[in-house]
Design a protein around this nucleic acid. Sequence first.
DNA 1: CTGTTAGCGCCTTCAT
DNA 2: ATGAAGGCGCTAACAG
Lengths: 340, 340
Amino acid sequence: MARKSRASKLVKIEDVAAAAGVSIMTVSRALRGVEGVSEGKRLEIIEISQRLGYRPNPNARSLMGGASGLIGISFPTLFNDVFAGILDGLRPAFEANGFTTVVNTTEYDADRERAWVEQVLSWRPAGLVLTGADHGPTVREAIQTRQIPTLQVWDFTDAPIDICVGVDHQNAGYQLARAMIALGYRQPGYVGIQHGKDQRAEKRLNGICHAFAEAGLGAVAEMRMPGSSYRAGYDGFQALWAQAPRPDIVFFLSDHFAFAGLMACQVMGIRVPDEVGLAGFNGLDITEVLPLRLTTARTPRRKMGVQGAKNLIARMHGVSSDLSVELQTELIHGETTRRP
Amino acid sequence: MARKSRASKLVKIEDVAAAAGVSIMTVSRALRGVEGVSEGKRLEIIEISQRLGYRPNPNARSLMGGASGLIGISFPTLFNDVFAGILDGLRPAFEANGFTTVVNTTEYDADRERAWVEQVLSWRPAGLVLTGADHGPTVREAIQTRQIPTLQVWDFTDAPIDICVGVDHQNAGYQLARAMIALGYRQPGYVGIQHGKDQRAEKRLNGICHAFAEAGLGAVAEMRMPGSSYRAGYDGFQALWAQAPRPDIVFFLSDHFAFAGLMACQVMGIRVPDEVGLAGFNGLDITEVLPLRLTTARTPRRKMGVQGAKNLIARMHGVSSDLSVELQTELIHGETTRRP
DNA sequence: CTGTTAGCGCCTTCAT
DNA sequence: ATGAAGGCGCTAACAG
């Protein structure tokens, strides 16, 4: 394989026309299945174009103004089953409707997201899917100016760019904390990642803090870790446990952190839930194989994707009514916290 | 936000030219930073174009045959830290060199990959990154015809489309099995997923089988699960354990399966490694927080990404020498198998 | 420095 | 049923 291609050797419609002894237009019509070509010629042309390996240049097509059938999807990261799950709901729906999807990750970086949105917008996408509710005004404006149907997933917001399908993370955290308070927990701890990395996590923590404050209980002891690996959850729990006062309930960024915390307890000989309660978030697959069923709040990730795709497609088809949906989380009373 | 945008209201270069009172060529030059425009005019034009919200139409640009600064990356799935890790190595290198990346997942479906490759090729990408060594002739030909620099990662092959950076999975499986045989294991079992879903996994299994056959030992008892969730690893191990003869060493598709198997042992009261040895693959983060350090073969995923990106960039810059690299796996003697 | 001319590959429109 | 113009938005290659 050589270096940068000289735009050259690709067979174009003209070549097919020449080979078939007809005009370009006839080839165009034949290949698109449009009326105006005798069946005999059509079959012959199709045969020839295949033999020549002709592929229409979609750029030229797009130039004519047609929609691109492209949907851009942006997630913060792929190191996370949450987004893989949402994507799993989104994609089949889009593909079933003939759309192509391109996926991006922002690594929780607003600049990256902005740059990507601009790139994708330049492809004249049929639609856009963004994660969360926090996008700069630039992004918002760029999208709205071009009137590209846009879905925001994961986070529910009252003021979406266009439509949104997600859960209220603040409330999810609040409800989870309320349930733990009802179980008698009084001394909360939290293991998460650094501020500003994950907006949704901050909202959940807000909800948790709110619930405990409202109940007149102690403040939530926060342990912020630099990364979001399993190791971070493991070390974070240990660090939190070494502090005074010891928490009687520890909330984690997500189930995978909680799992790591559980492993830490196992190694340190801390009895769960007798000595400490552990609560995760998301209801990930991994919770199904743990020695103790994890207490968590299940987020309907695939459903979110399916529903979101459906609504975005409706919007692309011109439905202008409100297509935003707030989904609920499901509290899972597991074995890592006291029995009710 | 309204319905499908009529291809219309977008501001084009002509509008900017009119607003600035110059010809469209001057605008084109000014915006691209090409020589031939007085600095005063350039600044003025840039200002105006921003005010108007002008964005060049890349389709028109691509029509001219220029390269797009775009790199398409395709992975089988995102439900997997392996590919996230490779991406983590790839992307920063590309971005540092001014390239934009678009990511796709094929869900291990060759048709999906083909469709995506065609889509991306139509954007005249500067380069392509594909996973594995198994691509249909269509894909291969489409890429080679257009002479797009292409990197195949993860799987090492002697006959890459262009260049490849990866590990020899067959050999990795072979070496791992050899090490287990050296530890005295004689009755191998394997928990994986269905045939045809993951080519690399099959190669590893091949290597494992080869090692045991070569040593004149029993055949590998295979347990194929329908999915690749943690649950599948968990259930798969249990099913395998219920069969006769019981394996004394179980190889797993990947570390996450092995982890699930370890959890199953814990619940079933099977002592590891006394009653059975467990071996994973990849050396994932999760292994760092397990009660027993997992025996596995570490794959250099990030390094693979970094190296691959570097080589692909070299290729895009015209380096035509052989840029393929075979990387090695590192055997980790953990606590889930006998001590040497 | 700036503007004009001629396409890139395809499709819409209008003839024939 | 077919073909001949013309243009989509942009940019090389030439003029001035």
